[in-house]
């Protein structure tokens, strides 16, 4: 994941306004820089059963098909997010039942069948870490959408608050507030699930961002 790269994505051959096709190399570089967080957006919006790889391919195909129309590289992130959300929602509307992949998690909290990533048995400690990560992931997926998406985006390595704000079309301060609240919700859910007491003395709640 690269950061701050929007200034160097000349999709079009020039900026004269002609409908020249995008520079394939620049387009590919842009896709490689952004596809991880696009996957995170899809993860936040797709139905649990929808195949993430299929949806990513749909977004990639849309990017190629529409590349000549992308005049403003700075708007690429918000454009990609819109395409990703549309793809995820369309999948939901179509109600297509796809094969579950090992990493797809059921949104209702039930345990999805997870296939091993390789044929070697995982070490117990590594397995426990992976299971705990999946448990937190399940909880994050159950958060309200307005908190779930920024929280997942912040968990993508390399994304800054400014970049998340560009993707979501929100001020950086709003992104920061939502992520802070999402973390509190996640922590409280995790504590409730394990019966751990909260270390916090009750304070008043802030207003919605």
């Amino acid at each position: 994941m690269a950061s701050g790269s929007e200034e160097r994505i000349p999709f079009r051959g020039d900026r004269s306004g002609s409908e020249k096709p995008a520079d394939p190399l620049a387009l590919r570089a842009a896709w490689e820089e952004n596809r991880r967080w696009v996957a995170a957006v899809l993860l936040a919006h797709k139905p649990a059963w929808a195949d993430l790889e299929d949806l990513l391919q749909e977004v990639a195909a849309t990017l190629v098909a529409s590349s000549a129309e992308l005049r403003d590289p700075a708007s690429l992130r918000s454009w990609l997010r819109t395409v990703a959300i549309n793809a995820a929602r369309l999948a939901g509307r179509k109600g297509r039942l796809r094969n579950h992949r090992s990493l797809d998690l059921a949104a209702d909290g039930s345990q999805a069948v997870r296939e091993p990533t390789d044929t070697l048995p995982a070490a117990p400690a590594a397995l426990a870490v992976a299971e705990e990560a999946s448990r937190i992931g399940d909880m994050a997926m159950a958060l309200p959408e307005g908190y779930r998406e920024p929280l997942l985006l912040k968990a993508v390595q390399g994304l800054s608050y400014r970049q998340i704000g560009q993707i979501l079309g929100l001020p950086e301060t709003t992104v920061e507030t939502r992520i802070a609240r999402a973390r509190r919700m996640l922590r409280e859910q995790a504590q409730a699930a394990t019966g751990e007491p909260s270390g916090r003395i009750s304070h008043g709640e802030g207003s919605n961002a």
């Binding site: 590919r28 896709w31 596809r35 993860l43 790889e53 992931g137």
Partner: peptide, 15 residues
């Protein structure tokens, strides 16, 4: 969790 869930993205190339 996110890294593991989105790692498939690295294998998705532009058509």
């Amino acid at each position: 969790f996110v890294a593991r869930s989105t790692e498939i993205a690295d294998a998705v190339e532009l058509p």
